[in-house]
Design a protein around this nucleic acid. Structure first.
Lengths: 213, 213
DNA sequence: CAAAAAATTAAACAAGTGTTGAAATATATT
DNA sequence: AATATATTTCAACACTTGTTTAATTTTTTG
């Protein structure tokens, strides 16, 4: 009934994902993608349409999985804490856990995906639509949860703090080459657990700085 | 004696800067650059060589100005505090002030430049060499200064905190469209003073979370 | 002013770009 | 098995890519 032959579409998406992660949207040609996927170039147009549609398909494939997980974690920790507001560090963790966990243990596909997210996040023209559509609603939910925990903070402050969190997360995903170079062997480049351990308290403390404003 | 005719080179760099900022390295062609500069395409090769050399020339033009300022500010605040370690918030400010100030009041050229920095920072293949060469030494100097202020923190922790700071800064530069969309008119998109006011305490608090580890 | 050097122009290069159309093959449905 | 649908192939399209070459103009130098 449905397409039993879904192999090709995913081959293309996998190849595209990996290449986009390294060289960006404009740095990858359809022929490079289909060549890596070992598939005829015309199949890209046949299955997806324009090049930009391939890019968006790559994004959407994992965005839904991710957002479901993150909302679930947020709702869980809110429910656990009721009737009190959820602890700040748990909220931050709910926001970051699914991302860092998959980036760490999700395999190459997820690594590539996050590298693309990092590019998009810093590239308004391409990422604007998708990011707004899929991540901004989530962001508002999280900011609201945090606001219940730090009621005295001004909404504008929290918005900017969220922004800093987003940037810190993003850069973490974007590749480890520079990082490990700078660290001079101080940390293993693939050790994203180390990030998680430090990001949550760092960000939590940053938010709390606006507790009494 | 020296090249009195430096007009063309800068016309090309200006055009390239602006275009790279919006569409990235691979998204811009030499003909687009020279067309915007109102100059013959062959002049790009004549003055700079390969396309990548244009890109690097764009980067270097402002990197030196920036780094000189930042090191100066750091040295100043260290000297002022002697024999005590410089206050943490002053160190953070020295690290961020030149960037945010120029991004805010430096005109379109600086805005474009920072947008490119943001791309590069999240794009190892292109940014690796330049960023390492020009910004990493500065980073080490700052981390060292911070370590004197928070002597009990582990070097690895501080390294990661620096990393988060870098990410937060980077995303701030990358463009304001998404940000203003998410904020729902909560903040003026061009109001980078607002960033500075909040980024410094946010980051300072984050670092201090590792005071007693 | 004449000679030398630097800068600019116009044309061309081979190679790669995204995308399309019609024919051929494989799969699914009746 | 025969028909209809979905997928794959191959070739070609018009266009853009980065870069180079040689001729020409402009600027600097002696």
């Amino acid at each position: 009934m449905m397409s039993t032959k879904k192999k090709t579409k995913d081959l293309i998406l996998d190849a595209a994902e990996q290449l986009f992660a390294v060289r960006g949207f404009y740095g990858v040609s359809i022929r490079q993608i289909t060549s890596k996927a070992e598939v005829d170039p015309a199949l890209a147009s046949y299955h997806f349409g324009k090049k930009q549609d391939i890019f968006e398909a790559v994004m959407l494939r994992r965005a839904e999985i991710l957002n479901r997980e993150r909302i679930q974690m947020l709702d869980d920790c809110i429910r656990r804490a009721k009737p009190n507001p959820a602890p700040l560090h748990e909220i931050i963790d709910a926001f970051t856990h699914a991302l860092l966990n998959r980036s760490n243990k999700g395999g190459q596909g997820w690594k590539s995906y996050f590298a693309i997210i990092a590019q998009i996040n810093n590239h308004p023209e391409l990422g604007g639509v998708i990011m707004s559509q899929y991540f901004d609603p989530l962001a508002k939910k999280f900011i609201a949860a945090i606001h219940e925990n730090i009621p005295n903070a001004k909404a504008e402050d929290l918005f900017w703090c969220y922004h800093f969190l987003s940037g810190a997360l993003t850069l973490t995903f974007s590749g480890t080459e520079r990082i490990s170079k700078l660290s001079d062997g101080l940390c293993a480049s693939s050790d994203l657990d180390a990030v998680h351990e430090r990001l949550v308290p760092f960000i939590t403390a940053g938010f709390k700085a606006f507790e009494n404003n």
